[in-house]
């Protein structure tokens, strides 16, 4: 087997593995998140309520950052699989999973920092 094909095979296997492991983490995170959501939306959602729970709360911060990192692994690989299947010859589209990964990491971590600190001012 030529090295190019071989390293691609190893990469594919590792991506599959990473996506499944992150899926296991997300299974837990999403289930917990759904419960938190149903609890939180009762009687409307305000910033004060949200920040009241998350501000200074290390447990929430760690939980949500783990959540963000699991999404970072899981979603772009899923998107890449769909693109590879439906647009096999469009190599240009392969930038999209990277774009998604960047958005998830940057915006996600900013969101976690934001709700943990409750605002660092404008």
């Amino acid at each position: 087997m030529s090295t190019a094909i071989h390293s691609s095979a190893v990469l594919q296997a590792k991506l599959w593995y990473a996506q499944r492991i992150s899926a296991m983490v997300l299974g837990l995170c999403v289930a917990i998140h759904l419960f938190i959501m149903f609890y939180a939306i009762r009687g409307g959602l305000t910033a004060g309520e949200i920040l009241g729970r998350t501000q200074g709360n290390w447990l929430f911060a760690i939980f949500y950052e783990v959540f963000v990192l699991a999404c970072l692994v899981h979603a772009p690989i899923g998107l890449a699989n769909i693109l590879r299947e439906n647009f096999p010859r469009s190599y240009g589209l392969s930038i999209l999973p990277w774009v998604l990964a960047t958005l998830v990491l940057v915006l996600g971590t900013t969101a976690v920092i934001g709700v943990f600190t409750g605002g660092v001012g404008r």
Partner: peptide, 13 residues
């Protein structure tokens, strides 16, 4: 090795 890679088992969805 034969069932790895993009023609192999991981392509099954």
């Amino acid at each position: 090795r034969a069932v790895a890679g993009d023609a192999g088992c991981h392509t099954c969805h």
